[in-house]
Design a protein around this nucleic acid. Sequence first.
RNA 1: GUGGACGUAGCUCAGCUGGUAGAGCCCCGGAUUGUGAUUCCGGCCGUCGCGGGUUCGAGUCCCGUCGUCCACCCCA
Length: 430
Amino acid sequence: MSTIIEPLRGVHDILPAQAAAWRFLEQTTREVFAAYGYEEFRVPIIEQTQLFKRSIGDFTDIVEKEMFSFVDQGEDHITLRPEATAGIARAVISNGMLRTGRLRVWCMGPMFRRERPQAGRYRQFHQIDAEAFGFEGPDIDAEMILLSARLLRRLGLSRIKLHLNSLGTPAARAAYRERLVAYFSTYESQLDEDSRRRLHGNPLRILDSKHPDTQRIVAGAPHLADSLDPESKTHFETLCGHLRAAGIEYHVDQRLVRGLDYYTRTVFEWITDSLGSQSTVCAGGRYDGLVAQLGGAPTPGIGWAMGQERIVMLLEKQGRIVPADGPQVYLIASGERAQRAGLELAERLREARPDLRLQVNMGGGNFKAQFKRADKSGARYAIVLGDDEVARGTVSWKDLRGGQAQQECAIDRVAERIGVLLGNEQANTG
RNA sequence: GUGGACGUAGCUCAGCUGGUAGAGCCCCGGAUUGUGAUUCCGGCCGUCGCGGGUUCGAGUCCCGUCGUCCACCCCA
């Protein structure tokens, strides 16, 4: 007897029972992106380790200790992508896609971070990702946020709040960063360990430290808003105006700085109060310097990422019923002749109605057993084919959910019959 | 990475102060003829996460380990 192989820590199977919620999320995502004219982009899951070091920032926890990195047989330094933006930016440059100026894309897929797992925080997790390149003005910032808002609304989720802030231009941010370093340096000995470590790497992160002592020091720190350059200020105010006009509620959060180094100007997060400490459901911002940093022509960019596991958790928690896609019709066939006739009939029906979801009983069984399976399949109707029906050239037809009596109809009129019945059903369920 | 709680059948859980495991659901079969979902009867299912220790004896106590979860950290 060999021992059972367990999954790796922090990775999960998505079981068929859960897949409906995922499919609903993914289908809705496709529709919403299409509604805004965004194109799907598929990029690799593995990239050169250097890509993430250069884009996300050497001093972020992600790069410092959370990446799944390895050297392969050919001495290549490879990393499983911990986020999507860097890979998309790289792909946009590699494929010369910026020559046409502007680009609005989205992608969806697994990401990897070697964190300590918790509900809503996994080592392999999935994100929906939106990116736009080549747009300088705040209109695209607004569109990005409106798009995410519409997606959340279309999913039927509520009680998710939008937090908003601006980090300024790279220059203003750099100046602010210096001011911040100067300020925190005078209190260096009083800072907590993590904050001290970040002081010269990513001092903005110190702002949202939860250490009480550090927080006291943070309270006296120079304000980001005061250091904003006039252009960034205007940019931010225009964005806020767009959001108000569109009826999107938001909360300006001075502490919101985001963890990744590449952000500039607009940053935002959608936050829920029903997921414990994994409260951010979607987050993003502008990264005007990233493309140039990765060797492309200087091009402004903005994007966001949404955590799919967290969304699915919210769908469950908020009791959203997602459309199932089990069979509509279950075909029962008993006896050798009936089985053969049943298989043939099923194929004919699928030919006639490509959208039909029809499950054929397999593995035999008496009528009782087959009806049990028909019931369990969730199908609305059962088509019954036994020796009697075969002899008569008919099928019996049973409504498993309604009170209608069982009927019989000619075998070559079944497709027509399905059209009538499921047509009605679709009208009823919208 | 730090601190803490938990880990018993496929699922949800019970098992008092240590005496070699139970329920419900699920699944399978039956209640005369080719009919499910209800009811009744019967049946299957566990190295009590794993490893070590204490003990005559451990699911129950101790240690370690793995995993899940909570907070921190980080972040989607």
